[in-house]
Design a protein around this nucleic acid. Structure first.
Lengths: 260, 260
DNA sequence: CGAATCCTTGAACACCTTCAACAGGGGTGG
DNA sequence: CCACCCCTGTTGAAGGTGTTCAAGGATTCG
């Protein structure tokens, strides 16, 4: 389940691990913060016992108290729909934050569930803003991270708005690959912690289509797929599919769309 | 073009209009801020000459200096795609903010163009964060607004991810209606400042489909459509279509999608 | 008035979904 | 240990929704 280079990052022991010792520290809040300030931040951050697969971090409408950073493992966030199903809004990998969407309403608009054994850092929001009032660079960092989240969502919107099923799945794989790469994992050897159903739900299609696409990508020599293990054989090809759609659709020149 | 109750809000004269005098002041930053603090904020806000239809507020990759609040009119934001077209990422109505997605990269990831004659308030970001360091409630308000933006994007993601064309268009109309209502405009008499092409682009479909849907909605007695003038005749029906999809799809019970 | 653009409508086709059946693991109990 | 079952994932065929292509009507602006 865990490949070679995870050993230096994953630490399942619930020891008190300082941010400065964490392999992900560049990815969470502390970027650009002085060591003395980092210590202050360290003091307010709680470590929780790891969540087991299927356990909830928070339910929808739960009161908002903290934001969370994924330390290891992965989390999916989703909103229940009227018809009793769920719409997945995101997959969260190590170094990524959860709960930013709850600040304005003081309640979590989505639920968060562990896709595998997952450990997290909890950052009480009140204490964080108090600290940000004292440390201007922390305030800036907070705003930057919020902005990054907005930026990320916009790129996702661009993805989901248009695009064929093929392009969407390719784009998801590219995104996962890139995020793993940033975190020091292999960008070509992915272990998908989410089910095909989750992927389909997230991308707005049905399971069958996802399954067929994995098969097709494998036939075309883009991927090697073995259950949850995915090896990206032709990253550039995958990129091409993600951006323009290989088969057709590359020449949609007539698609204007301006008001000017 | 302008119906009755806009007169108290729209003020095309580029006079120095204080936030405290603005009909939208509850919708921009100043919520929950003391009068004395509001004055400080007032001092850093610039008013710009109104933009004419088709003029750009900023281009993509432009250096980020300010965030903007729409005072009157409307703005679309979009990103150019590789193939020379554009992907619209949002429509911005009076009282809404622009540029929050540029904070982390210090460059605007999207371009902003006026859909009609539009006046804006410009808030220099450096000065805003300086002020936020002095006024904690302003910092909190800033974070809340960023969070709101994230929340809004997530709801849009949920919309675009799944959903038939019918549901998407209905949802857009519901969203516009609700936003106009909040701003004191009529929620049933919409004047769409964007073209059909813009709508199609934003919702990830082609113009023809949008056109057909408007026709169908009219035939079904949900809307009365006259070019850019749209009257919502049956708001509850529109809501039903937006949420579940009237025709079919309401019974997608078998759509599970959990990993647990 | 004429040109350009935006919007609408129709018919054929493509992609994705729906429905259905089956294969392959992983767990439990006999 | 193997039979059995449940669940996830895969594959096939038919059908529907939205797209593509094509043409015509409406509106705006010079």
């Amino acid at each position: 389940m865990e490949d070679g280079n995870t050993s230096k990052i994953i630490n399942l022991n619930p020891v008190k691990l300082a941010c400065s010792d964490c392999g992900l520290y560049q990815l969470c809040l502390p970027v650009g913060i002085e060591p003395s300030e980092l210590e202050q931040l360290d003091r307010i951050i709680k470590r929780r016992r790891p969540l087991r697969r299927g356990e909830h971090l928070f339910q929808v409408s739960a009161p908002f108290r903290s934001i969370y950073a994924v330390h290891s493992g992965s989390i999916k966030t989703y909103v229940p729909t009227e018809d009793g199903n769920e719409q997945i809004t995101g997959f969260h990998l190590p170094g990524e934050l959860l709960g930013l969407d709850a600040i304005s309403t003081r309640r979590h608009p989505c639920a968060a569930k562990a896709l595998e054994t997952t450990s997290l850092c909890e950052i009480p929001y009140e204490k964080l803003t108090e600290l940000a009032n004292v440390i201007p660079s922390l305030q800036n960092q907070l705003l930057r991270i919020m902005s990054q989240e907005i930026l990320h969502d916009h790129s996702l919107l661009t993805l989901l708005g248009k695009r064929s099923a093929e392009e969407r799945l390719a784009a998801l794989l590219v995104s996962l690959s890139e995020r793993y790469r940033q975190r020091g994992f292999s960008p070509t050897e992915l272990t998908l912690s989410m089910s095909r159903n989750d992927i389909a739900n997230y991308l707005g299609m049905v399971v069958e289509t996802v399954s067929r696409l994995f098969t097709r990508f494998q036939e075309e020599g883009i991927l090697h797929v073995d259950r949850k293990q995915v090896r990206i054989i032709a990253p550039d090809l995958l990129n091409t599919v993600a951006c323009s759609g290989q088969s057709l659709r590359s020449e949609m020149t007539a698609r204007e769309g301006t008001t000017t």
